Amino acid sequence: SFLYTLFVFLFLNSSQVDGYFAIPFATTALSVFSAGTFVYFINHSVKWLQVNHMTQSMKTESIKAIETTIREELEVHRTQSAHNEPFSFPEGEKNPVYIQTSGYIQTVNYSRLIDYAKEHNLVIKMEREVGDYVLDGTILFYYWNRDSAEQDEIDQAIFHRYVHIGKSQTDIQDTTHIITKFVEMAIKSLGSDDFKTAINSIHQISDILRKICDVSQFSSYLVDDSGVVRMVIPDKKFEDFLYDGFANIRHYARRNIIITMELLKTLGNLAEAIGPAYYDDIWEFAVYTSQGFEEEYLFVQDKKYFLHILYDLAISTEKEEQYE
């Protein structure tokens, strides 16, 4: 609007003023619209930069990424039954596939890899996972031919089409990186004594962990449409995600009774939300957090609330005897 007004003043002269009566009206309307847009922009910026709104927006986007990564790309290939015993790989020669460039593994096209493995009767064992930093020449995965008598010629260049390596980590398939963003926010907040932001980040992490439990079976075996295991990925259980989410926060809050109690309270809420299958993992992490607390001197009220929260967690996880 400002540039428009300048051009109007530049090209108008005294002989044209009477003929262009619409120009003042258009200029005024644009100026009012611009002022309104600027006011809206300031209001939106202030609202968006509020901690609750910002973390909520981040969590919403993170949950969408988790839905895509786990439910739509991995769960469709994961086995429906649990494998309690290690997978027996074929006895033939294992063939390595090497990484061709250094960087972060950003995406892996699991569906295309599984289809290719089915087409050539292969079994693939991933040595790296999305989010890992890899160096040129390191091994990405091994593959075996299920039938050593009939081995197709494998063009390893095709494998590299299905794995993308970039200069930075992304949220596309990296669930750990999604959690780490909130962990970093919590740690930086603790460093600046912004406890409200730290507590809010802890709450958002717990909701992300709950979502991961909802959509994942935590199986490392991926099968084709015939139910044959075609890929074995690095084994990552709920306890690993729990450690990724809260271990660093526990470390930096080991002398802060308020944050430690909030962390234990959040673990109790998480236990009630996700069910008995994960009680052992949550209780073990709670014990790890409690024993790692380093403040020797606490007021009576601090001890009272601390033990009360820990007892509530023991009830939620059915660990009353261990609490005693």
Rank of each mutant, 00 (worst) to 15 (best):
Y133W: 14
F182T: 01
H53R: 13
L10H: 11
G103F: 00
D302I: 05
L222I: 08
Q156Y: 01
D214Q: 13
E75H: 11
S220D: 14
G92V: 04
H177V: 05
N145M: 10
M58V: 06
I282C: 08
F33S: 15
F195C: 00
K211E: 15
T5G: 11
S45W: 07
F33C: 12
V287N: 10
F299L: 01
H120G: 01
L209I: 10
F87Q: 03
R78K: 15
E119K: 14
I99H: 04
A22Y: 14
S316K: 15
D302C: 06
D214T: 09
F89V: 15
T170R: 08
V134D: 02
S31N: 04
L222E: 01
L263D: 02
S192A: 08
S168Q: 05
L313A: 07
K118V: 08
L242D: 04
V8C: 12
N248W: 01
E67L: 01
A247C: 06
A22Q: 13
R128S: 10
I178S: 03
I202D: 04
K188E: 13
Y243Q: 11
E324D: 08
A82W: 05
R71T: 08
A117D: 06
E91K: 09
S201R: 04
A314Q: 04
A22R: 02
H83K: 12
E294M: 14
A157K: 15
F7S: 10
M231I: 08
E262P: 06
I154F: 07
Y133Q: 07
A26N: 01
E150T: 10
A273C: 02
P234Y: 04
E67P: 05
D174V: 02
G191W: 09
K125E: 10
M185E: 14
F238H: 05
Y98D: 00
S31I: 10
N269M: 06
M261C: 12
F293H: 05
D302Y: 09
Q16V: 02
I199P: 02
T180K: 14
A65V: 00
R146S: 09
